[in-house]
Nucleic acid binder design. Sequence first.
RNA 1: GCACCCAUAGCUCAACUGGCAGAGCAACAGACUCUUAAUCUGCAGGUUGUAGGUUCGACUCCUACUGGGUGCACCA
Length: 504
Amino acid sequence: MSDELNYVLQARREKLAALQALNVAPFGYGFDRQHLAAACPALLGEAAEGPVVQLAGRVVAWRAHGKSTFAHLGDPSGRVQLYFKKDVVGEALWALCELLDLGDIIGVRGPLFRTRTGEVTVHVEHVELLAKSLRPLPFGKEEVVDGAVVRHSAFADGEQRSRQRYADLAVHPEVRALFAARSRMTSAVRAFMDGLGYLEVETPVLQPLYGGAAAKPFVTHHNALDMPLYLRIADELYLKRLVVGGFDRVYEIGHDFRNEGTDRTHNPEFTMLEFYEAYADYTVMMQRVEALMIAAATAVRDSLTAAGLASEAPAFDPAVLEGPFPRLEWLPSLSQALRVPDVTKLTDAELRKAAEHAGVHGIASLSRPKLMDELFQHHVESKIDRPTFVVDYPKELSPLAKPKRGNPELTERFEMFAKGKEMANAFSELNDPIDQRQRFEAQATLKAAGDEEASGVDEDYLRAMEYGMPPMGGVGVGMDRLFMYLTGTAHIRDVILFPTMRPE
RNA sequence: GCACCCAUAGCUCAACUGGCAGAGCAACAGACUCUUAAUCUGCAGGUUGUAGGUUCGACUCCUACUGGGUGCACCA
């Protein structure tokens, strides 16, 4: 597929030259836009003729009829029909109109009127070229069948839509609406956290030590300091340092980076929300997550509804948005799923047999807790549909969480699942520096033994903790996945504007 | 990382068992002053992802490579 000047691109270059020969500047400097397309019907009202409007946007449809032309102009609000008539715009502007293409960015001025078929239309008296499109956008043709827009020959290649997101957005208003809804969700999350007195902060992306999660990092190098730096895999340890410093409620929304494979739910960089609240335990954090989910879902629903996009996503079911979300205890729910009185009483052989039955891979190398976790994922997690908290994980599976009061074999940890996917992970955070040092040292041993996902001993973090760290609850929420859930999107690349891809 | 699948005109897709690479839309030329997937006439547009191989002959079969997708493994 050559990007050389083929006949299609060549034709646009020739029009560019023709415009320049007419003394038309093909790339403007600005335009005094005074109206938006979507406002036009209200401006016209029931009248046959309406006020003069001044609009700017992209030519998204073009139907020439000799000495008149119908077109549609698209702007951020929607689209409106334009009517160009040779004896209205005059010879000079008509010559310009004849050189316009689908995809050109223009400004127009003229009174509103209603066509014979009833469509609100701008009767264009003045038109300006603001940017000539030298490469045809992959516009499909649209028709309305039974009220629904049907596209023909649309831009459908998922790879190209991701690579050329600018083109995807330019020709698909619904894609713009989806990403706008994502932005609204982020705003709603900020408003929610701010409203609870949380302080939004920024912590290092480039870190001399990585930690806060089990993942392989990206490594880079600082030339002047001649030292390796890691792109963060989590914000956790820096945010908790801030709580030591006296910021009792902090949150950060930012990118984490994990050097792992990509699939429909994994992008190497992704957006994480983390928040920490001093003097709160995990039960308080469950309330926070519940309210946060509802705030996020409401923002997404309102944004998509305003854009005229209905959604089949489960979060649009009001019943799902109402708290409290069901709570499921880890051990009892697993025992119940396996139809045994107490899963911890099973022999190793019985556990392995159950895992085999569930299709777990690499059973021989898995510890008892890992086996139980695999069984839990298979029998419980994957079947959770509506938002549900799973609480009180075994200690072995939760190295960063405080022991559960009254049962030291468990931890005060919860994860929230919806549609079988993890939405949030949270603990009553460990604040004992002596215990923390032991856990770091265990990690360091694993790292020395070649575990790429293990972290080292973070002495600076331990120093901070030794000064006295208040008890706190902490939560991590993957924003990409949350948005996927709220919109029913199947692929993470469809909720990230520029997903990571190999170069073409 | 492993397995399987896909790659044809600017866009969306055809091309039977190996036998002259096609259509619609877009583009280009022309007609048309209320159309809306506008319509009508005409004309163009290709190193079939890349590099090899088999064959009288390859879009089609084989090998390698590149990019993508799906599943598994890992993970949020």
